[in-house]
Nucleic acid binder design. Structure first.
Lengths: 154, 154
DNA sequence: ATGGATGCAAATGATTTGCATGAAG
DNA sequence: CTTCATGCAAATCATTTGCATCCAT
């Protein structure tokens, strides 16, 4: 009888093999970390969550670049200095909203861009994709900043 | 009688002064370059278009960071290694589509995200903005690649 | 005058790369 | 056994920063 970890490992093997890629320990562990985290992760977050501490940062970079090319992950830009990565398979298309103050990330499930993409295809573009991120101040940060302003009034 | 260049210079002075910023030659020239180019530009594109060849790259970086903070320009990510910048004032809100093959950039005037932003505000987020870029293969690149495939068939 | 902007040079830091070794198929 | 992935170290390259000087106000 297989446990969850084994099942997951089988799933990841299938993914790698179906892309004609070798199954290696770092690749499996990176996929597992991405799967258990529900939010886009930076390279160094991924690296520091690895149990296998001898895996080099360069391997993590190479692996995520590979996965991006294979479209196993998508590369996400939150307008800071780090690229972030998120699994594509097993999650439906969605976007994010990032709090400009605390960095909190929520998913935005709705996507209304199908019409725009169709319009672009009518203009001659093919293989149209898009990258969309929202930025704002989350409720908690707004509360904190309001109470700070009150404190400064005395 | 003022010519166009003088008028433009006056416009840029007003912008800088209204943000309590000093009017300097590099700042005026960078604004002018951004205005005459209708597409987002990289730092090094901006720098190489400057007539004043003694302006340092560091100054261009500092100026664009300043303009971004002041929301005079917006910083745009085309998922390559360079940040790009575009004037905000005097152009209405729009997005871009970038050809993944030749890099050609077109404006996408329609924006259908007002509803989504309202939904996010109902969820507690304030000061909501978004970044949206499209990627695809433009008609010309598709034609080239089709004819290349034909050539390879003989 | 004087605080801020610039040029110059050096530092920073994320990302990439060359190469020898080890592991996957 | 042969191709490809990895570890390690060094290189790369966009971007930032320290500092002396210059200039806008």
């Amino acid at each position: 009888m297989q446990n969850n970890a084994d099942l997951e490992k089988e799933e990841f093997k299938v993914i790698l093999l179906s892309h004609n890629q070798r199954v290696t320990a770092p690749r499996l562990e990176i996929l597992s970390i991405l799967k258990s985290n529900k939010k886009p992760m930076t390279i160094s977050q991924i690296h520091s969550e690895m149990k296998d501490k001898k895996t080099d940062l360069a391997t993590v970079y190479r692996t995520l670049n590979l996965f991006t090319d294979l479209r196993i992950v998508s590369e996400i830009d939150f307008k800071d200095e780090f690229k972030r990565y998120e699994l594509i398979f097993d999650r439906h298309h969605h976007h994010h909203i990032v709090c400009r103050s605390c960095g909190r990330v929520d998913n935005v499930e709705a996507c209304v861009l199908g019409e725009l993409e169709k319009m672009l295809q009518r203009k001659g573009y093919t293989e149209v994709t898009h990258s969309l991120e929202f930025f704002g101040i989350c409720e908690e940060c707004r509360r904190v900043s309001v109470s700070q302003n009150l404190n400064n009034q005395n």
